[in-house]
């Protein structure tokens, strides 16, 4: 069964099998430690929501053949802008302001990449540092509390029919992302551009516009991730998102998206993100020391990568 799957679409399915295997391992090893409780499993999804939202957008960016390193800094900026706005104005304006910051940054990144034709790695590396500085100076390193109950409920701690709102955000991001990626003309153009930009252009795809759009989507989703952090923590801080970039990229790649463009998977990115969250959760519950947690996590990710991403043509 495994070999049959591997023969067809290796990267596509083995990650799911690997995910289930690790899940089963934790379920057995931690049967007395509360790993399998509904509360704990929902925790894992909620803890990874921000990363999942960014991972969905990163599937688009990597598939179109670009990369966005600035997402971590956008998280902090959007959260702070929203929190500061909500001090004076009602929460919808805070949400709009936070998202608008993301859209604006995405436009700048995208325009520099698509129209000025600069490499996205360097453009977003530069904006990553620039925006981290802006986030620090925005509130003089101060944390900003968010006291709006509606915002905190919608973006953090509320539940609908027993399902936490963060879980719904994850489902929505993955559902919409998957649909757009697979079923729309935009999604097809993203694939075509990443696969062979010249051919795509000859075929009538507005390659520049697609690249710009992908970077706007990426930045906007990072801003949404920032709002979700602010809702979860009831406040914003300049360090939010600082450590998320590599987790997001790892989740997306483990989930079967090609770093070189042209192919990707939104559900795979979700599984990658949940895998990262599950590893954090399970290794803590095992009672390992922090150093041992890092070592074991490294080994498991290596194993997952070896299973899913081995390049048979090399």
């Amino acid at each position: 069964m495994l070999s049959a799957l591997r023969a067809t679409e290796p990267a596509k399915y083995v990650i799911y099998v690997g995910f289930l295997a690790i899940f089963a391992l934790f379920a057995v090893a931690l049967r007395d430690s509360g790993f399998l409780t509904t509360a704990n499993l929902l925790n894992i999804i909620q803890q990874t929501t921000s990363v999942t939202v960014m991972a969905v957008a990163t599937v688009f960016v990597l598939t179109v053949g670009e990369i966005d390193l600035s997402i971590g800094s956008v998280v902090a900026i959007a959260a702070l802008v929203a929190a500061v706005t909500m001090r004076e104005f009602p929460w919808p304006l805070g949400v709009l302001a936070g998202l608008a910051a993301g859209v604006a940054i995405g436009f700048v990144n995208g325009a520099l990449v698509a129209y000025v034709r600069l490499p996205s790695f360097l453009v977003t590396l530069a904006t990553m540092g620039l925006l981290a500085g802006v986030a620090r100076s925005l509130t003089n390193l101060q944390s900003v509390p968010v006291e709006d109950d509606v915002f905190n409920a919608l973006f953090g701690s509320a539940a609908l029919l027993g399902i936490p709102s963060l879980v719904l955000w994850s489902v929505a991001a993955v559902g919409i992302g998957h649909f757009v990626f697979r079923e729309t003309r935009f999604g097809a153009h993203v694939h075509a551009t990443g696969d062979n930009a010249g051919a795509a252009r000859a075929g009538g795809v507005k390659v520049e516009r697609i690249r710009l759009a992908c970077l706007v989507v990426s930045s906007t989703c990072a801003a949404l991730a920032g709002l979700l952090y602010a809702g979860r923590l009831h406040g914003a801080r300049y360090t939010l998102g600082e450590t998320d970039l590599l987790t997001v990229i790892a989740a997306v790649i483990v989930g079967g998206t090609r770093l070189s463009g042209g192919a990707g998977s939104v559900p795979g990115a979700l599984i990658g993100s949940l895998l990262m969250g599950m590893l954090n959760n399970g290794l803590i519950l095992m009672g390992l020391s922090v150093s041992d947690q890092m070592i074991v996590r490294g080994f498991i990710i290596l194993a997952a990568v070896a299973l899913t991403l081995r390049d048979r043509t090399r």
């Binding site: 430690s33 409780t37 925790n43 909620q46 923590l233 954090n280 390992l288």
Partner: peptide, 26 residues
Amino acid sequence: TIVATTDAGFDAAKQKSDVETVMAKK
């Protein structure tokens, strides 16, 4: 008995996750 040890890496969001995770062990 010490049942869990975590490192939030100075990340307040990670710390919140850590609290949620260890609460499974009550």
